[in-house]
Design a protein around this nucleic acid. Sequence first.
DNA 1: AATTGTGAAGCATTTCACAGCT
DNA 2: AGCTGTGAAATGCTTCACAATT
Lengths: 220, 220
Amino acid sequence: MRNPRIPEAAIKRLPVYLRLLEELMGERVTIVSSAELSEKTGFSPEQIRKDLAYFGAFGTRGVGYDTEVLSRRIRKILGLHRTVHAALVGAGNLGTALARYSLSKYKDVRIAAIFDSDWDKIGKQIQGVEISPMEDLIPMVRRLGVKIGIVTVPAPEAQKVANQLVEAGVEALLNFSPAKIRVSQDVYVQNIDLTIELQSLAYYTSVASGEDDAETKSRL
Amino acid sequence: MRNPRIPEAAIKRLPVYLRLLEELMGERVTIVSSAELSEKTGFSPEQIRKDLAYFGAFGTRGVGYDTEVLSRRIRKILGLHRTVHAALVGAGNLGTALARYSLSKYKDVRIAAIFDSDWDKIGKQIQGVEISPMEDLIPMVRRLGVKIGIVTVPAPEAQKVANQLVEAGVEALLNFSPAKIRVSQDVYVQNIDLTIELQSLAYYTSVASGEDDAETKSRL
DNA sequence: AATTGTGAAGCATTTCACAGCT
DNA sequence: AGCTGTGAAATGCTTCACAATT
């Protein structure tokens, strides 16, 4: 893991600032304060200042942040000053949707290769990227310098796919399968489990019982 | 928000325990210890015990947890002892993939209605659920008793869609759009922004500069 | 005068360590 | 003897309050 002092949560906020800054630049806004960023993002101004201060002093006291300077700095921090290549494994419903979404919208993280084991899918294209067979994964990922792996295969295959991606040199994984992936400590894994999201949402709904009924929960 | 003293993170772990417990029940395992649950989920045994203890004492000291009892309790806590109805708004790539994924796999959270504004899509079906026009959203969501809204529309429409869902009685929202949604305090909002996930992953990659040394003062 | 940057305080969550049951 | 349940300690993150800077 890169820098243990910087909260993961802060890293996740950087792309939000980046998007907003680029929106502001499109409106010819050159200076913005943490209070204004707060207004638009919902994060507190102190938190925004602290997040940015982790990486250096980017603002001007009494003035604010230069939108262009700041957006460039954030891009650099995230490593988005160059296109980052990703490989997507599993061209099912979710994988295909993700590839289409990602390829059509953003260019800073680019899905450079797509893999699947189904020969009916192999050879077909998604947004101009051809689906390749699993056999080609390791050599292609190596050759293309892919740094991010996106796992959208069924749970039983997830670990094997992750192993192959890591062997091929991937440094971060985005795992959409419900399987727990175990990889070397220096590979970062981010899980997104849609079932968990949906099921945990139910808790915040009136049908959930929380801890209300018959239980004996005695606290001081 | 339901119960402020239970960490959100703990709620998110409950579906993980639930899935594992049901898997174990399928293998005729009747008793499981927090150590075994830890082994399979990657969460620490203490954390698992604490998570469960928030809702009462479900285990037997010296023995462990009864898989059937515990899974039933978790279902009840999450409100999954009855099918929870959800409505999905926006039948684009992501929305369609999500509907297909969710409708084919799980029955505890069921997508009971799908809405879109595009008349080419309206009337078509996804996994047996017909796509309805936006005009029908409020009455249908009310009539079906939908508690969860899934927002997969483009950012500019997200707030308006959220307002309609809330007006129709939805209590929790899953927002896939990059827009910040503002709703009444008692509606729970969970955001999943795929662009943020991808961009923040880049940070954990060797191309990112993190907070490295020489950068901080010199370059313009 | 305005707004950043930051140590310190305040919360929240996780881990520790062990008492309490079975 | 073994494993849960839980206060207390440790850690991590956010908010506060104000000094520093333009």
